Computed example of a mutant assay.
Amino acid sequence: MRPLPLFALAYLPLLGACQWLAPQPASPAVQKIAWEQRAEGCQSERCSLVNVETLRISDVPALDAQIERALLAMTREADGQPLPASLRGYADALLAESREGRETWLQAKLVDRHGDLLVIELSSYLYSGGAHGMPGRGFINYSLSRQRALQLDDLLLPGQEDAFWTAAREARRDWLKAQQLDQNRDFQASWPFVPTANIALLHDKLQLKYDVYALAPYAMGHPTLEIPYPRLQGVLRPEYLPAR
């Protein structure tokens, strides 16, 4: 029996809020939307399915649309593959094409809310046969005041990108030590540090979460690097550092 993705088995509690320097607009209500669709008429034990857990954010339709686009992007199996029009449309097409042996699990969950930010974690797991499927991760750091997702350039002071990735390399050294790999030169040569776009601006730290095969072999899952905010003084814009 093939393993199910971890996020399909457990739901992490929301992290607590924290007072930040940025003004705090009214926080919208967040509704969880969950559905599963299976291949119609399939009687096999390996019927294809699409399982979706997503969010609806009250009065923020732009974020709803961005979450759906991001989840759809995680269904791509090749670079340049066009995006389906909707999650339901994706499910209909996949299940019509492959009645057996395919599974797609997609999830968007709110992992933090603080100041004017909503931090959404995106998860995917695509199975098309073999020993295991391919998981994916991503984040949306959505600013309610700016009404858009923040990119790394929005977070950094001018000219501080190199300093940011230096702090990330320090976090990788912390991770290697925690994994008891800090003295393993072969591992470090085989899995060198690389940047990632998967950045979460949490209330108590900045987190980088890597896809499988990026910093480590598949069996080690999604390596997570954590940068304490004191290391980012003079690197992040002051409005994205916690109030002291």
Rank of each mutant, 00 (worst) to 15 (best):
residue 35 W to Q: 08
residue 36 E to M: 13
residue 38 R to V: 06
residue 38 R to E: 11
residue 38 R to W: 07
residue 42 C to Q: 02
residue 44 S to T: 08
residue 44 S to P: 00
residue 45 E to F: 04
residue 45 E to L: 10
residue 46 R to W: 08
residue 47 C to Q: 08
residue 48 S to W: 01
residue 52 V to G: 07
residue 52 V to F: 06
residue 52 V to A: 09
residue 52 V to P: 02
residue 53 E to M: 02
residue 53 E to H: 07
residue 54 T to M: 09
residue 56 R to V: 03
residue 57 I to S: 04
residue 60 V to Y: 04
residue 60 V to K: 08
residue 61 P to S: 03
residue 62 A to H: 07
residue 62 A to N: 11
residue 63 L to K: 00
residue 64 D to A: 06
residue 67 I to Q: 08
residue 68 E to A: 13
residue 78 A to I: 03
residue 78 A to Q: 15
residue 79 D to L: 13
residue 81 Q to M: 15
residue 82 P to M: 07
residue 84 P to C: 10
residue 85 A to R: 14
residue 85 A to P: 01
residue 86 S to N: 12
residue 88 R to E: 14
residue 90 Y to P: 01
residue 90 Y to Q: 10
residue 91 A to S: 11
residue 91 A to L: 07
residue 92 D to Q: 15
residue 93 A to E: 14
residue 93 A to C: 10
residue 93 A to K: 12
residue 93 A to N: 12
residue 94 L to Y: 02
residue 96 A to N: 05
residue 96 A to G: 05
residue 97 E to R: 12
residue 98 S to T: 12
residue 98 S to V: 06
residue 98 S to F: 14
residue 100 E to Q: 14
residue 102 R to N: 09
residue 104 T to A: 15
residue 104 T to M: 13
residue 104 T to L: 15
residue 106 L to E: 02
residue 106 L to W: 03
residue 106 L to C: 08
residue 106 L to Q: 04
residue 108 A to M: 10
residue 108 A to C: 11
residue 108 A to T: 06
residue 108 A to D: 05
residue 108 A to Y: 07
residue 109 K to I: 00
residue 110 L to E: 09
residue 110 L to K: 11
residue 112 D to P: 03
residue 116 D to S: 15
residue 117 L to F: 00
residue 119 V to M: 04
residue 120 I to L: 09
residue 121 E to L: 00
residue 122 L to S: 01
residue 122 L to W: 01
residue 127 Y to Q: 02
residue 129 G to T: 08
residue 130 G to L: 13
residue 130 G to T: 12
residue 130 G to V: 11
residue 130 G to C: 13
residue 131 A to S: 15
residue 131 A to N: 14
residue 133 G to S: 12
residue 133 G to F: 09
residue 133 G to V: 05
residue 133 G to A: 11
residue 134 M to Y: 14
residue 134 M to G: 06
residue 134 M to N: 14
residue 137 R to E: 08
residue 138 G to P: 02
residue 140 I to L: 15
residue 140 I to Y: 09
residue 142 Y to N: 06
residue 142 Y to A: 06
residue 143 S to A: 10
residue 143 S to I: 07
residue 145 S to Y: 05
residue 147 Q to T: 13
residue 149 A to G: 10
residue 149 A to Y: 00
residue 151 Q to I: 07
residue 151 Q to V: 12
residue 154 D to Q: 10
residue 155 L to G: 03
residue 157 L to Q: 14
residue 157 L to H: 01
residue 157 L to P: 00
residue 158 P to Q: 03
residue 159 G to P: 03
residue 161 E to M: 05
residue 163 A to Y: 02
residue 168 A to P: 07
residue 168 A to F: 09
residue 170 E to G: 09
residue 170 E to F: 09
residue 171 A to F: 05
residue 176 L to Q: 02
residue 177 K to E: 14
residue 178 A to H: 03
residue 178 A to G: 05
residue 178 A to W: 00
